[in-house]
Simulated assay, not measured.
Amino acid sequence: MADPVPLYVIGLSKDEPANEVLSSKFGSALEKVQKVLSNIIEAKITVEFQNPEGSKTHYDATATVKTSKNTLIYTASGWDILKIADELSRKLEGEYSDRENKRQRESIRKKEEF
């Protein structure tokens, strides 16, 4: 089993429930993707929010996944932090299916001629 990827949540206090939700959902997505992208160094989620004193708070979240070859960046924004966590996780898991499909492609040379 691979080592867990270090995940940092910036912009939310550690005792806030939204911090725990983001960490758990995005962390489980990182574990899934780590099977295909085994060279992940670290992951960081930066959360910015507007109108924290009012009744509604608008969140802007940016997830950055740093690998040894490149950096993957995903953004999401909205009023509900749960939906934002789901959207960021879904975008990251999209990498899993993309990489998996590329590996399973048949070679042109192996196709039979009719």
Rank of each mutant, 00 (worst) to 15 (best):
E113Y: 10
E31H: 07
G27W: 02
Y96G: 02
G54F: 09
Y74D: 03
K44I: 02
D80R: 13
S23M: 12
R90V: 12
F26L: 13
Q34T: 03
V36E: 13
P4Q: 04
G11P: 01
R99M: 13
K66T: 05
L37P: 01
R90W: 11
N19T: 15
Y74N: 03
S68F: 10
E87M: 08
F26I: 15
F114S: 09
I41H: 05
T67N: 07
D3I: 04
Y96E: 07
V21F: 06
R103L: 15
E53C: 04
T67C: 04
N70V: 09
E87T: 09
K111I: 13
P4W: 06
I81V: 07
I108R: 14
L92P: 01
V9D: 01
G54Y: 06
T46D: 02
K102L: 14
V65Y: 00
N70Q: 13
D3A: 13
I108G: 10
K44M: 05
F114G: 08
Q34D: 03
R99H: 12
H58T: 06
T46W: 03
K91A: 08
R109L: 14
K102T: 12
N70S: 07
Q104W: 07
L82I: 14
Q104F: 07
L7V: 03
E112Y: 11
S13F: 08
L7Y: 00
E95R: 06
S107Y: 05
K14T: 13
K111Q: 13
I45F: 01
S24Q: 15
S97D: 08
M1A: 10
E113G: 11
S107N: 10
I81W: 00
K35Q: 14
N19S: 15
L72S: 04
N51T: 08
A63C: 09
V5C: 01
E100P: 02
A76T: 02
T46G: 04
K102D: 14
I81S: 02
K66F: 03
Q50R: 06
A18P: 02
N51Y: 10
K35N: 08
E20S: 14
G54I: 07
R109D: 10
H58L: 12
T46V: 10
K56M: 08
G54C: 09
V36I: 11
R105Q: 15
S38D: 11
E42M: 08
S77N: 05
E20N: 14
E48Q: 15
K102M: 14
L88F: 01
D80T: 08
I81Q: 01
I84M: 09
T75A: 03
V47G: 03
P6Y: 00
K56P: 00
E53F: 05
S107E: 08
K110N: 12
A29T: 03
Y96R: 11
F49R: 07
S38E: 10
N51I: 04
T71P: 02
D80H: 12
A63L: 09
W79Y: 11
E100H: 06
K35W: 10
V9E: 03
E100L: 14
